[in-house]
Simulated assay, not measured.
Amino acid sequence: MKKLMTSLFLIISGSIFSQVAVGASQESNNRWTFGGGIGFGFGSNNYFNLSAAPRAGYKLTDDLEGGLLGSVSWQKSNAYSSTMFGVGPFLNYYIARTFYLGANYQHYFINYKDKIYDFKANTNEDALYLGGGYMQRIGNNSFMQIGIMYNVLWKENESVFSSGLVPNIGFVVGL
C-alpha cells in the first residue's frame, strides 16, 4: 500500500509541476506557485538515498508566500533501510527576488529497519526548519533556490536525523 501511495504521490506532484511550469509564464497575475526539489546521495557501505519534496504555495503579498510542502525519502545501506514521508506548512519572505528567508514545519512518518540487529520501528518526528538562501532567476517567473535551514527542534541522540543543519536546492515557478 505504501508503494502505491508513494508512486501516486510522485506522479501527481510531477504532473502538477510540469503543467504549471508550462503555463506559468502566460499568466503573470496568478498568485499560485509550484516547485520543489529532488535529491540523491551515495556513500560507504552501499548507502543510497533518493528524495523528492514537491511544494505548492500562494503569494500572500509580492514578497510573502505561504503554502504546503511534502517530502518522501528512501534510504538504504548494508546496515539499514528506511522510508520517510513528511508534510507541513511553509512560509517564505523574498528580498528583492535575490534572497529569501524561510520557515517550514514538517511532521515525518518514519519506517526504519536495522538489518544487523533485526530491528524494525515505525515512528514520528517533528521538525521546524528556519533559514534562508540565495535565489537565481532561470526564467520569466522561475527561480532556483540555494540555501541552508536548521531544525530548531533537533536534539542529539533523540532524533532520527544525524544533524539539525540541512542544505537545500530547489526550484519554484510562479514568483
Rank of each mutant, 00 (worst) to 15 (best):
S163P: 00
G43Q: 02
L64W: 15
K155W: 06
Q106T: 06
I146K: 13
S162M: 11
Y105H: 05
L153N: 08
G164C: 07
L4P: 01
N124A: 11
G35R: 03
D114T: 03
K59H: 15
Y134M: 14
S162C: 02
K115Q: 01
N30K: 04
N141H: 02
I38P: 05
A127V: 05
P54W: 00
F90N: 01
G139C: 00
V172G: 12
G139K: 02
G132H: 14
L50I: 15
I116F: 08
F143D: 08
W74S: 12
S163F: 07
I11G: 03
S28Q: 12
L64F: 15
D63L: 11
N29F: 03
A52W: 03
S71V: 12
G70W: 02
Y117V: 15
Q106F: 04
N49I: 10
F109K: 14
L60C: 09
Y129E: 00
F40T: 03
N122D: 14
G37L: 00
A96K: 13
G66S: 14
E65N: 08
Y117P: 08
D62L: 07
M135R: 02
T33R: 05
N29G: 11
Y117R: 11
T98G: 11
N29R: 08
S159V: 05
K2F: 10
G88Q: 05
A24M: 02
L8P: 00
V72W: 15
L64S: 07
G66E: 06
W32S: 08
L175G: 13
G14W: 00
G57R: 00
T98E: 13
A79Q: 15
L10H: 01
P89L: 13
F17A: 12
G43Y: 00
V22Y: 11
Y150H: 15
F143V: 10
S28K: 14
S25I: 04
G41H: 07
K115Y: 01
D126H: 09
S18P: 06
F109M: 13
A103W: 05
E65Q: 12
F143C: 07
G35W: 00
I146N: 12
L153V: 01
Q145I: 13
G57L: 00
S15P: 10
I110V: 14
S162N: 15
K113C: 04
L91T: 14
K113M: 06
V20H: 03
R31T: 09
S7K: 07
D126M: 07
S82N: 11
T33D: 04
V87N: 07
A103E: 02
G88W: 02
I11R: 08
Y93G: 01
V20P: 01
S51W: 14
E158S: 14
K59C: 12
V22Q: 14
F9E: 01
F171W: 13
I95E: 09
G86Q: 14
S13H: 03
Y80H: 11
L91I: 05
F90V: 00
M149D: 03
L165P: 11
